[in-house]
Simulated assay, not measured.
Amino acid sequence: MASQLKYKRILLKLSGEALMGEDAYGINTGVLEFVAGEIKQVVEKGVELGVVIGAGNIFRGVAGASKGMDRTTADNMGMLATVMNSLAMQDALERTGVITRVMSAIPMQSVSEPYIRRRATRHLEKGRVVICAAGTGNPYFTTDSAAVLRALEIDADVVIKATKVDGVYDKDPMKFNDALKYESLTYDEVLQKGLRVMDAAGIALAKEDNLPIMVLDMGVSGNISRAAFGECVGTLITA
Rank of each mutant, 00 (worst) to 15 (best):
M1W: 04
L5G: 02
L12E: 05
L12Y: 03
G16I: 10
L19N: 04
D23A: 15
T29G: 06
L32A: 09
V35D: 00
V35K: 03
Q41L: 15
E48M: 08
V52T: 09
V52I: 14
I58K: 01
R60Q: 07
V62T: 15
A65R: 10
G68Y: 09
V83P: 03
A88D: 11
D91W: 09
T96K: 15
V98N: 12
I99A: 14
R101F: 07
R101P: 12
S110Y: 05
V111D: 09
R118P: 01
A120T: 11
T121F: 07
G135Y: 02
T143Q: 06
D155Q: 10
A156R: 08
V158H: 01
I160S: 03
A162D: 00
A162V: 02
T163Q: 03
T163H: 03
V165R: 00
V165H: 00
D166E: 01
D166C: 01
D170G: 05
D170L: 05
K171A: 08
K171T: 05
P173Y: 03
P173F: 05
P173Q: 05
K181L: 04
S184G: 09
S184E: 13
K193M: 10
G194V: 03
D199P: 10
A200W: 10
L205D: 06
A206T: 11
K207N: 14
E208R: 14
E208V: 12
D209C: 14
I213K: 03
M214I: 04
M218D: 00
G219I: 01
G219T: 12
V220I: 11
S221K: 15
S225T: 15
R226C: 00
R226Q: 04
A227F: 05
A228F: 00
F229D: 00
G230F: 01
E231W: 00
I237A: 11
T238A: 11
